[in-house]
Amino acid sequence: MRIESLLPPAQPGKPWTLLLEGKETLRVGEGVVVDFALYQGKDLDEETLEGLKKAAFAADLREKAVSLLTGRLMSAGTLREKLLAKGGSPQQVEEIINWAQDIGLLNDEEYAKALARHYQAKGYGIYKIKDEFYRRRVPREYWEEALAALEEPNEIIDRFLEGKLKDPEDRKQVKKAADALVRRGFSWSQVSSGIERFRRNWAENH
């Protein structure tokens, strides 16, 4: 199989483009170009072509990983799942994950902290945040530290109750507000304390 053309990338660090006989196109990194000593007009035997295609797929998989990680934060577990779904072998995927961690594109510890802050800012409690940790495949070794860095939930609960409760003596209103807070990930003890605080403040002002 002959290389009809070998084009460098428009941007440094991006894959090179190979056009083979039959119009088949491969995209490979600069390291692959060097390792395989590629040049326009080179003839490739079957073994070399097979190795080149594997290298091209690995380069494409790495580019997909970069695209995923620059678009939004995610855990190593989520990235692993996505790359495996795209056809990457376990070995290829682990190599890409290790590479992304080495260059700082992937950091489960910082991701856990950012995720916890994000959901607390949206008004959610610790149990909802834990659900998100689990759903987004954040390793459990980072949960405790991320949760410990959060602010106390009292202000969040108080603001929620101020917006929802008009009369703390109305049992239906109280139950509806309490159930909503529990669904948001707060414990019953936190919710009960919040309702008591609301009742005390309400009594002082009415």
Rank of each mutant, 00 (worst) to 15 (best):
residue 187 S to E: 02
residue 175 K to C: 03
residue 204 E to G: 12
residue 205 N to Q: 15
residue 206 H to V: 01
residue 164 K to M: 07
residue 201 N to H: 05
residue 176 K to S: 12
residue 195 I to G: 07
residue 179 D to C: 02
residue 180 A to W: 00
residue 178 A to C: 05
residue 196 E to H: 06
residue 200 R to G: 08
residue 186 F to Q: 09
residue 178 A to R: 13
residue 176 K to E: 15
residue 171 R to H: 05
residue 165 L to R: 05
residue 189 S to Y: 02
residue 170 D to A: 04
residue 175 K to N: 14
residue 182 V to P: 06
residue 181 L to S: 12
residue 174 V to Y: 09
residue 186 F to E: 03
residue 190 Q to D: 13
residue 194 G to E: 08
residue 179 D to A: 12
residue 200 R to C: 02
residue 173 Q to M: 08
residue 201 N to A: 03
residue 202 W to T: 07
residue 174 V to T: 13
residue 170 D to Q: 09
residue 204 E to A: 10
residue 165 L to E: 04
residue 167 D to G: 00
residue 194 G to C: 11
residue 185 G to P: 06
residue 173 Q to A: 14
residue 178 A to Q: 08
residue 187 S to I: 06
residue 182 V to K: 08
residue 195 I to M: 04
residue 167 D to S: 01
residue 200 R to A: 10
residue 184 R to V: 10
residue 176 K to M: 13
residue 193 S to T: 09
residue 167 D to W: 02
residue 166 K to H: 15
residue 183 R to M: 14
residue 200 R to P: 09
residue 178 A to L: 10
residue 197 R to C: 01
residue 168 P to N: 01
residue 178 A to E: 03
residue 205 N to D: 11
residue 188 W to L: 10
residue 199 R to N: 04
residue 165 L to V: 13
residue 181 L to W: 10
residue 206 H to R: 11
residue 172 K to D: 09
residue 170 D to P: 08
residue 189 S to Q: 14
residue 167 D to V: 06
residue 186 F to G: 06
residue 177 A to I: 05
residue 169 E to A: 01
residue 205 N to H: 13
residue 179 D to T: 14
residue 170 D to I: 01
residue 206 H to P: 05
residue 194 G to Q: 13
residue 167 D to K: 01
residue 195 I to P: 13
residue 174 V to F: 07
residue 196 E to K: 11
residue 188 W to P: 01
residue 206 H to S: 04
residue 199 R to P: 04
residue 180 A to K: 04
residue 171 R to P: 02
residue 200 R to I: 15
residue 165 L to I: 13
residue 177 A to W: 03
residue 204 E to D: 10
residue 165 L to Y: 00
residue 204 E to Y: 09
residue 189 S to K: 12
residue 176 K to G: 10
residue 194 G to I: 11
residue 203 A to M: 05
residue 205 N to E: 15
residue 172 K to A: 06
residue 178 A to D: 10
residue 194 G to R: 08
residue 176 K to I: 04
residue 187 S to D: 00
residue 172 K to H: 14
residue 187 S to A: 05
residue 175 K to L: 11
residue 173 Q to E: 15
residue 187 S to K: 00
residue 198 F to G: 07
residue 180 A to G: 08
residue 199 R to A: 09
residue 192 S to D: 14
residue 204 E to F: 08
residue 170 D to W: 04
residue 189 S to F: 08
residue 168 P to L: 03
residue 192 S to K: 15
residue 185 G to K: 05
residue 169 E to K: 07
residue 186 F to V: 04
residue 202 W to C: 00
residue 183 R to C: 12
residue 173 Q to K: 04
residue 188 W to Y: 12
residue 199 R to C: 02
residue 185 G to C: 03
residue 180 A to E: 13
residue 171 R to T: 07
residue 182 V to F: 01
residue 180 A to H: 02
residue 165 L to M: 03
residue 170 D to R: 02
residue 196 E to P: 08
residue 193 S to L: 01
residue 170 D to G: 03
residue 187 S to W: 03
residue 167 D to Y: 00
residue 204 E to P: 09
residue 169 E to L: 01
residue 194 G to M: 10
residue 177 A to C: 08
residue 167 D to A: 05
residue 187 S to V: 07
residue 184 R to G: 10
residue 165 L to D: 10
residue 203 A to I: 06
residue 173 Q to I: 04
residue 167 D to L: 03
residue 196 E to Q: 02
residue 190 Q to N: 14
residue 184 R to A: 08
residue 178 A to V: 05
